[in-house]
Each structure stands twice: as structure tokens, then as C-alpha cells.
Amino acid sequence: MTATPALILASTSRYRAQLLERLRLPFETARPEVDETPHPGEPPATLALRLAMGKAEAVARARPGAVVIGSDQVASCDGRLLGKPGSREAALAQLRAMSGREAVFLTAVAVAVPGAATAQWLDTTTVRFRALADDAIARYIDAEQPWDCAGSFRCEGLGIALFEAIESNDPTALVGLPLIATARLLRAAGFVLP
């Protein structure tokens, strides 16, 4: 019987690690050294896939023999990229801009397997926001302080109250790692999952 290779999540995101734990596979995490600056005119889907692939392959080069998962999420509203706000003021501005609108979250996953081409997948999630009053936005961000979340919300927490609807093939993608696709890619790489 062949030993299962080490599994590494190329991310220091606690959200992605918590999601991957749901698959009940032992894994470790590693910080990928990847420049996340978008290229001029780069479409959001291309950016998400490029960064997921870059993260997986950067860690795979440093850890030959391991299977490495890279993931990235790019969000946009009305054609404008939405990053992690980093501050209360930026979170207020993001949520005001998305009030009553739709935002698209493109979540890519890539799995680098020794001796094989890196496999990848892109999940698209559309979030329809309610019309949000300024006091409701302020109450929300003061309660959850989502400074490290693209779009300034945590859908797995109180942020769900900001929405009219979510359209997605995989509800975990919005949190940051599409587990349905990740499980499929890991099974193809030889990991045993249900």
C-alpha cells in the first residue's frame, strides 16, 4: 500500500483551515509567497484562478512530494473589485456600495500533485444584498468587525442577515474554499473521502 502524501493548505486563512478540517484529512498550513496584485485589465475570474494556482505551486516547489491546495477569492460589485476592507471606514463604504445590489464572488481552488498537472476549479457565487440603512451597516460591522473579509461580511455569522439571497453551487465557496470541488480534486489525487 502506497503512503498518502502530506497534504498542505497554502494559506494562513483561519476560515480556509476551518473549512478544510471538515474533510477530516490531516493537513498542515504554509504561507504562500505570492504577489496578489491584479494585472492591468485582468478579469476577476482569471485573477482568482491565477492566484490559487500560484499559491499551490509556490508551496509545492518548497515541499516536493506534498499535495498542496491553493485557493483565492475575488469579489466584485458593478465591475469594481472588492478587497478586504482592513478598517471600519472601508467596511462601511463597501457595504454602502453593495446595498440593494448584487456582488459576485469568484472562488478558485487549485491542487498541485507531484508529477501531475495542477488541477483547478472556479466557483461563482452571487450575493444579493438587501437595501441597507447606514445604522444597520454600522451595527453589523461593529458586531463582527469583518476587516479581513472580502466584501466586509461573514456569511457564516451575522453577515447572513445582510442578504436577500445567495446563488451558488457550493455554499462553502463564499467562505473561501469550495469544499465540493476540493473533495473531488483530492479524491482524484488519491485521498480517501466518502
Rank of each mutant, 00 (worst) to 15 (best):
E42I: 07
P44E: 07
P44S: 09
A45Q: 15
A48S: 10
A48M: 05
A48C: 03
A48T: 06
L49I: 14
A52W: 13
A52V: 12
M53V: 15
M53D: 10
M53A: 14
G54I: 08
G54W: 03
G54Y: 08
K55E: 02
A56R: 11
A56S: 14
E57C: 10
E57S: 05
E57W: 04
V59S: 04
V59P: 09
A60Q: 07
R61A: 15
R63P: 04
R63A: 13
G65V: 09
G65N: 09
V67S: 12
V67G: 13
V67I: 14
V67L: 08
V68C: 06
I69H: 11
G70F: 02
S71C: 11
S71G: 05
Q73G: 07
Q73C: 11
V74F: 08
V74L: 08
V74Y: 02
A75H: 01
S76Q: 15
S76V: 04
C77Y: 06
G79I: 10
G79T: 07
G79H: 09
R80Y: 01
R80P: 00
L81K: 09
L81R: 14
L82V: 05
L82P: 07
G83P: 10
K84F: 11
K84W: 09
P85W: 04
P85Y: 06
P85H: 02
R88E: 12
E89A: 14
A90Q: 07
A90G: 02
A91C: 10
L92Y: 10
L92E: 14
A93D: 14
A93S: 11
A93W: 06
Q94W: 04
Q94K: 01
L95V: 03
A97T: 01
A97C: 04
M98V: 04
M98E: 03
S99H: 02
S99C: 01
S99L: 05
G100W: 03
R101I: 01
E102Y: 01
E102C: 12
A103Y: 06
V104Y: 07
V104N: 10
V104D: 11
V104T: 15
V104F: 08
F105Y: 14
F105N: 06
F105Q: 03
L106S: 00
L106N: 00
T107N: 12
T107C: 14
T107Q: 13
V109N: 07
A110T: 12
V111K: 12
V111D: 10
V111C: 13
A112E: 05
A112N: 02
V113H: 01
V113I: 11
P114D: 03
P114R: 01
P114G: 02
G115P: 13
A116V: 03
A116C: 11
A117P: 01
T118E: 00
T118G: 06
A119R: 13
A119Y: 03
L122R: 09
T124Y: 05
T124L: 12
T125K: 07
T126G: 01
T126Q: 10
V127Q: 04
V127P: 08
F129E: 01
R130H: 03
A131S: 06
A131L: 10
A131G: 01
L132V: 07
D134I: 05
D135G: 00
I137Q: 00
A138I: 15
R139F: 00
R139N: 03
Y140D: 00
Y140Q: 00
I141E: 04
D142N: 10
D142T: 05
E144M: 00
E144I: 00
Q145P: 04
P146R: 02
W147P: 09
W147A: 11
D148V: 04
D148H: 03
C149P: 06
A150D: 08
G151P: 11
